[in-house]
């Protein structure tokens, strides 16, 4: 080994350059990825005319926070925010109930037709709601629910993905636990509630975060089932705001964009580790 001439990568390693190279590449990737949001942030604080410089300026000459006030005066972002929170939590709450029950059944009970029924849940994971917006729109229309918050939630209330994750989590809990609980007279729904659910907490948290992020960002479905600003969510509000403000007031447009992304972004930056862990956890096991 020692007498052989080192390969280029071994040479790099010896010189400690390997690590330096990795840092350099990652800095470039991270920098380029960060740029869009940072530039939008900077633009959102500029004066309307300051955008049109021959060379794009990263630092605004003065920070115009008034752009945010202006954006909020033009579009009811407050209402959009409250609607989004209601819709997102409304989806999550029902998802957790339906998926816990179904996950429990598939993980711990034996019954006729279980694999066929489980198949129906798995196939749903491959059939994205975007594929069936047209018939679902007709259903919602016939139910008389167009332009309501419930309409934005209903198609997501049963989740094959959540069911699958919870089934995995419940299955990992050893049979001994169930036997011991049975001796203490704890079985069925009580066993689910006081043993299985607490033990599956990491999975439940992971799924909850993913569900919140997914539905916070939903666009197509809320777009087609709503009409009025009173029920619309942030992402739709942004698209409407953009169409309304089609002039070249870039700082105003970016202030709107930042407003819409800010709540999740702030949460993410504070609980960065929790988010990262959750997405990793549910990604691999899902």
């Amino acid at each position: 080994m020692r007498s052989r001439t080192p390969t280029p990568s071994q040479l790099l390693q010896r010189l400690g350059l390997n690590k330096l190279l990795i840092h350099l590449i990652l800095m470039m990737v991270a920098g380029v990825t960060a740029m869009p949001y940072l530039f939008a942030l900077s633009t959102s604080l500029k004066h309307r005319t300051e955008v049109f410089t021959p060379v794009p300026q990263w630092i605004p000459s003065s920070l115009r926070f008034a752009n945010y006030a202006d954006a909020m005066a033009i579009a009811p972002f407050g209402t959009y925010f409250i609607n989004t929170v209601i819709v997102v939590l409304g989806i999550l709450a029902v998802q957790l109930v339906t998926a816990t029950l179904a996950g429990y059944v598939f993980a711990r009970l034996r019954f006729r037709g279980s694999s066929l029924l489980f198949g129906l849940f798995l196939i749903q994971m491959m059939l994205p709601v975007h594929a069936v917006i047209v018939p679902n729109y007709l259903t919602i229309k016939e139910l008389g629910l167009l332009d309501t918050r419930v309409a934005m939630m209903m198609p997501f209330w049963a989740s094959g993905y959540a069911t699958f994750l919870l089934r995995q989590a419940f299955r990992q809990i050893p049979q001994d636990f169930e036997d011991a609980a049975l001796i203490d007279g704890c079985s069925g729904p009580r066993f689910l509630w006081s043993v299985l659910i607490p033990l599956a907490k990491p999975t439940i948290i992971a799924f909850s975060l993913i569900s919140i992020v997914t539905h916070w960002n939903d666009f197509l479905w809320p777009l087609i089932v709503t009409d009025s600003p009173q029920v619309r969510t942030l992402t739709i509000g942004l698209a409407m705001f953009v169409q309304q403000e089609s002039g070249a007031d870039w700082p105003l447009l970016m202030a709107g964009t930042i407003l819409v992304t800010a709540p999740l972004m702030v949460l993410f930056l504070i609980y960065q580790r929790k988010f990262v862990e959750s997405f990793m956890h549910a990604g691999v096991k899902g």
């Binding site: 960060a34 949001y37 916070w216 960002n217």
Partner: peptide
């Protein structure tokens, strides 16, 4: 964090960022 944060940005908002860029 720098590589993952776009996941938190709604597609619609991401579209706006790129319309500017």
């Amino acid at each position: 964090v720098a590589a993952f944060y776009p996941t938190m940005v709604p597609m619609a908002a991401a579209g706006m960022l790129w319309v500017l860029l």
